[in-house]
Amino acid sequence: MQDIVFIEGLHTKAVIGVYEWEKVIWQELVFDIEMEHDNRVPAANDDIHKTLDYEAISNAIKGFCKEHQFELIETLAERLCALLIDRFGLTTITMTLRKPGAVPSARAVGVKIRRSA
């Protein structure tokens, strides 16, 4: 196993849900992302170009959520993991996707998936 680079508590909005009323509103989503990455390579020369760019990955997540509409958070998580693996050359990603407010008596509901290239 390699080192883990993570982004925790990334908030964004998406049009997502199975009910008709959900298909016309923006809802909050919260992401926790863990990406396996060998940090010895960038650390050896203090080289930012050899590490994972947190901002670029965060912007890719936010952009994807704004540009796509799904009924299921499972579908969003699968497609987004595939995009991040491809775009950023990830070997393994673990994504926790929460949809706060989906169940009134719960703080959040969601999915946690782990995918590899």
Rank of each mutant, 00 (worst) to 15 (best):
I25Q: 12
L97P: 01
F70M: 06
Q27C: 08
R107S: 14
A44V: 01
E34D: 14
V111Q: 13
F88W: 07
D38L: 04
D38Y: 08
Y54C: 14
F70G: 06
V103P: 00
L72M: 12
R115F: 04
D53A: 05
M35T: 03
A43C: 02
D32T: 09
V24W: 01
D47A: 12
H11Y: 07
F31P: 00
A44H: 08
D53G: 03
I16N: 03
C81H: 03
Y19M: 13
R114H: 11
N45F: 03
I16Q: 02
L97W: 06
V5P: 00
E22H: 04
E22V: 01
G9Y: 13
H11G: 04
V41S: 04
P42F: 06
A82H: 07
L80G: 02
F88N: 07
C81F: 03
I85T: 06
G110H: 10
K23I: 01
R87F: 10
I33M: 13
D38G: 05
R107V: 11
L83I: 15
A43V: 00
A77G: 10
P100D: 07
L29T: 04
L76W: 02
L83T: 11
D53N: 15
L72W: 06
P104M: 13
P100K: 07
L97F: 06
D32A: 10
I85C: 14
A77R: 05
T94A: 14
E34F: 05
H68T: 08
V24E: 08
E20Y: 07
E78N: 11
Y19V: 02
